[in-house]
Computed example of a mutant assay.
Amino acid sequence: MVNTRALITSLDDHELDVLAQSYRLATCASEHRELSINCTDLLKPELAMPFLQKVGAFWETDSMTAIVSLFAKRYAYLTIAAGLYAMSRYNKGMDLALNNSSLESHIQGEAWLPKVLLGNREVSCPLEGKRNEWRDEVIQRMFADNLATVWAALSNMSGVSQAVLWENTAIYVYWLYENQFAEGADEQERQQIEADYRYLVQDAPAHLFAQRTNPLQKFDSPKRVTAVSNTPIRVRKTCCFYYLAADEPDDYCPTCPKLKHG
C-alpha cells in the first residue's frame, strides 16, 4: 500500500477489536473451509457457482437469483463496513482490494455470518494536507478494485442485474453512516464522518467505483412515510429478490419497490 500520500502503520489493539467485534473483520482463517473462499475465486464460475450453491442452503432456496442477491448483501457489508469505519473514525486505510481479501465463513446457530480476512494487514494514514487524495485511494480499493469486479462476474454468471447488486451495496453505506458510525464519536469525528458520507453519496467520481456514474448517488433518495411504513424509509429502486427465499410467498422487504407505497 505504499504511496506518496500516506504513511504506513497498523491498527492498534482497540481498533482491531472494534472492527473484529462489530464490522466483520476476521483475525484468522475459519475452520469452515468448504464455506470460505479467496475473493479472487469469486471471478471463476467453476469455483464460484458451487460455493454459492453451498451457501444457498442456509437460505433454503434453489433460486440462484435469490442466492446471488442475498450473498451480495453479505459480501458488500463485509467488504465495506470495516474499511469505511476505519477510514472515517480512525483515519486509517485498509487494503480491501480483491487480491488481498478472503471470505472466511463463520456459523452462528443456523446463520451464515462471513467475515473478511486481509493478507496484507498494514494500513495507511494520510499525510498532512493529502487526506482527500488518500481517501480516493481507500475508496477505490474497496469499490473499484473489489466490488465492481465481483458484481460484474456474478451478474454474468447468474443473470442478476448489476443494478441490484449495487443497490444492495448502497443500502449498507447509507445504513452504516446514518445509524452506526457516529456512535460514541466526538464532535470532530462526527464532522469527518458526515464529510466522508456526503462525499461518497454526492461528490465521489464514478471511476472510484469503476462505473459510468456514482452508484451510491444513483440509488440515494429521500426517506419518506409510505402506505406500508409509518417510519420514514428510503424505497428501493430495484427488488433484491428476498421474497424468492422467504418462508411465505410474497414476503417482500419493507422497502421493496414491488409494494404499493403510495
Rank of each mutant, 00 (worst) to 15 (best):
A6P: 04
L7E: 13
L7R: 14
S10G: 13
Q21H: 15
Y23R: 03
R24L: 14
R24Y: 14
A26V: 01
C28T: 13
R33D: 13
R33E: 15
D41R: 11
L42S: 03
K44C: 10
P45D: 12
L47I: 08
A48C: 15
P50E: 06
F58L: 14
L70C: 08
A76L: 05
A76V: 04
Y77F: 15
Y85E: 06
R89T: 00
G93D: 01
N100V: 12
G109E: 10
A111H: 15
A111D: 14
K115S: 05
L118G: 03
R121V: 10
G129N: 02
N132V: 04
E137D: 14
R141M: 13
F143M: 12
L147R: 02
V150N: 04
A152D: 14
S155K: 10
S158V: 03
G159A: 12
S161K: 09
S161V: 07
A170K: 03
V173D: 01
W175M: 12
Q180A: 09
A182V: 03
G184Y: 09
A185K: 00
E187A: 13
E187W: 10
E189V: 13
Q192V: 04
Q192K: 07
I193D: 01
Q202D: 13
Q211P: 01
D220K: 13
P222V: 13
V225C: 09
T231L: 12
K237P: 03
Y242T: 11
E248P: 01
P249T: 10
P249L: 09
D251K: 11
C253H: 05
C256M: 08
K258C: 05
K260C: 08
K260V: 12
G262N: 14
